[in-house]
Design a binder for these strands. Structure first.
Length: 425
DNA sequence: TCTGGGGTCCTAGGACCC
DNA sequence: TCTGGGGTCCTAGGACCC
């Protein structure tokens, strides 16, 4: 019989660790990574957590601490995190052939018939990764993905654990689940937690001991999968890296409230262009463009307006100009005057693969070659000389809606000008 | 003054067909 | 006056994730 074990490896306070890698002076200091627009906190160093600052805290609530130097803020620097992510994943793939990248700082590792002492091996992976990449990780290993998540949290919590935890025997699993809060389980969100609280279910073990039929009936298929995985039956597989996305979205909150049509149009066109680039990168075509415009949901003093519109493209395309044009048409359907907007987004839907034969309408056939050449030149220039070197006319200059990021660190690994110079004396 | 962004999966219900 | 039933496909919206 095959022996399968799942590992979940994830970066400890990943964004904060990335920033700190280039600023050793910040070791042991509370670091806050801010969302786009410097809106709220999306990652914290251990020291910031210790201060009791919660995830998602709006930045203005820590302005005082930033000013007096207690908390060090960073605007998010996705180029830096992305590059360190690449190095992390590359390094982890040395330890098993079966790896699934799950997010910017997490990956699943599948160990099939590994005859090592898994605790030793897990500790080895953690130590080697830190040595080679420089950012610390934790690793949890168990018979299913859900249990590996549990093991990973225990590895993080237990300071004696060397960053690794393996749950293998029935007794080990039972003991771990008996003290694991049910709301911390992967797949249990606010709504399931509320339902479980009403049943007086507090631990993962108690949840796993509910009757299966009852769980299936009351918690839908996703809840049932969690239940099964807790009992050691794998429901989640390893997902292939090649699978394309089903939707591609770009959206941003504006730097300030906007009322004028032109600024919103400009922002939407930029999002449309950015979506189109992502679309071409995964080599697919979109059939629908969905746009959304809305007011600030926290401003009770202003009228609330949220509206979306989905426009069908005449035929599947990945041409930035066509998608931008359709985006503007969609805006014209839902734009209202006299409204204070604070965010807009574009989502491309109905994505189809380049390779799985598309129906071409007769009169557009000869345009497709031209469009492909134009888009490929656009992409090449922008990859080589930086984002938005070459733009389409309606993209504008971004001044009216640009976001704020006042605390951006250098792009140490991806911008030549930002590389650190080391002078050997 | 100031509250992120990009995804996936599931279900209910409407539209449409025969 | 009487007005089926079952299937599929699509979409909107909820829940959850990082």
């Amino acid at each position: 019989m095959k022996k399968l074990l799942w590992g979940l490896a994830d970066g400890n306070n990943f964004y904060a660790s990335c920033e700190r890698l280039f600023r050793p002076d910040l070791i042991k200091k509370p670091i806050a990574i801010l969302s786009n627009n410097d809106g709220c906190i999306i990652a914290r160093s251990e020291e910031l957590k210790a201060l009791g600052v919660k995830m998602g805290t709006p930045k203005f609530k820590i302005n005082e601490e930033i000013k007096n130097g207690t908390i060090i803020p960073f605007s998010s620097n996705y180029e830096l995190y992305g590059e360190l992510h690449n190095r992390l994943m590359h390094t982890l793939s040395r330890f098993t052939p079966d790896i699934e990248i799950y997010s910017i700082d997490e990956s699943w590792l599948l160990f099939e018939n590994f005859n090592y002492n898994m605790t030793d091996y897990a500790e080895h992976i953690v130590a080697e990764t830190f040595k080679l990449v420089g950012t610390p990780i934790s690793l949890g290993i168990a018979p299913t993905k859900t249990l590996a998540k549990v093991a990973n949290k225990l590895a993080k919590k237990d300071k004696q654990s060397k960053g690794a935890k393996v749950l293998q025997t029935e007794d080990e699993i039972k003991e771990a689940l008996s003290v694991f809060p049910v709301q911390d389980l992967w797949g249990v969100g606010r709504s399931k937690f509320k339902a479980l609280t009403q049943l007086n279910i507090k631990t993962a073990l108690e949840f796993s001991q509910l009757p299966g039929e009852w769980v299936r009936k009351n918690f839908s298929i996703t809840g049932f999968r969690t239940w099964q995985e807790l009992r050691g039956f794998p429901c989640h597989q390893l997902l292939e890296e090649t699978s394309s996305k089903d939707a591609i979205a770009t959206g941003r909150t504006f730097g300030k409230l906007l009322t004028d049509y032109d600024s919103i149009k400009e922002a939407l066109v930029n999002h449309a262009v950015s979506c189109s680039q992502k679309l071409r990168k995964q080599k697919s075509y979109a059939s629908y463009v969905n746009i959304r415009i809305e007011t600030n949901r926290f401003r009770d003093d202003l009228p609330r307006y949220v509206n979306t519109f989905t426009a069908r493209l005449l035929q599947p395309t990945n041409n930035s100009v066509t998608i931008a044009k359709t985006t503007i048409e969609a805006l014209d359907k839902i734009f209202k005057k006299g409204i204070f907007y604070n965010r807009c987004s574009v989502t491309l839907l109905g994505l189809s693969d380049e390779l799985t034969g598309m129906q071409e309408s007769l009169f557009e056939q000869h345009d497709r070659g031209k469009s492909k050449t134009l888009m490929s030149i656009l992409d090449q220039v922008n990859i080589r000389y930086g984002k938005n070197t070459l733009k389409i006319a309606t993209q504008g200059n971004g001044k009216s809606w640009a976001l704020r990021n006042e605390h951006q660190s250098p792009k140490y690994l991806t911008q030549l000008d930002d590389f650190i110079n080391i002078t050997l004396g």
